[in-house]
């Protein structure tokens, strides 16, 4: 395994973690319907990144699981029909969860960027294309978190 292999392995882990965090966010905030649905939609990108990394891994000496282990959190990528949302008072926990996710996604986008530079330097065309595509989606996940934070925080802070 070379250094690129190590980076791929780490990203594979980070993507899995982000996917699980997005799914947990979705579960924890079912009554915030956009969080519920988008959390699941955006976890899909992580799932795709995980399998893309598993496909390219062997070229750099790493064997990775192409599937996301979600322990039933997201069966076959389909969502269960929602039942009536329950009332909760989760504004502050929602902010905490979103801040955590934002940090994770931003850090991961940086890791992707490092991989982009490495792939560029090593003229690894396929890896470069993959890393560019994934990084752009990771950044979009981060921006979604920050947009939701802005939207939610003001009302929460104005009220308290």
């Amino acid at each position: 395994m070379n250094l690129i292999g190590t980076a791929i392995q780490q990203l594979h882990q980070s993507e899995q973690r982000l996917a699980l965090d997005l799914l947990r966010l979705s579960e924890r905030h079912r009554a915030d319907h956009e969080i519920y649905h988008l959390g699941r939609d955006l976890a899909r990108w992580c799932r795709e990144h995980v399998s893309a990394l598993a496909r390219i891994g062997p070229l750099y000496g790493v064997t990775l699981d192409p599937d996301l282990e979600t322990s039933g959190l997201l069966s076959a990528g389909q969502q269960e029909p929602t039942s009536p949302g329950e009332t909760d008072a989760m504004v502050t926990p929602l902010l905490t969860d979103l801040r955590h996710l934002y940090r994770e996604a931003i850090l991961m986008s940086l890791d992707w960027e490092v991989l982009i530079w490495t792939a560029q330097a090593g003229r690894e065309r396929e890896l470069l294309e993959l890393a560019q595509r994934c990084r752009s989606q990771t950044l979009r996940q981060a921006r979604w978190c920050s947009a939701k934070i802005k939207e939610t925080a003001v009302q929460a802070l104005l009220v308290s």
């Binding site: 956009e34 988008l38 939609d41 955006l42 979009r140 996940q141 921006r143 979604w144 920050s146 947009a147 939701k148």
Partner: peptide, 10 residues
């Protein structure tokens, strides 16, 4: 906005 996430473009 982002056509998938809905996040406003900066």
């Amino acid at each position: 906005r982002d056509l998938v996430t809905g996040a406003p473009v900066e």
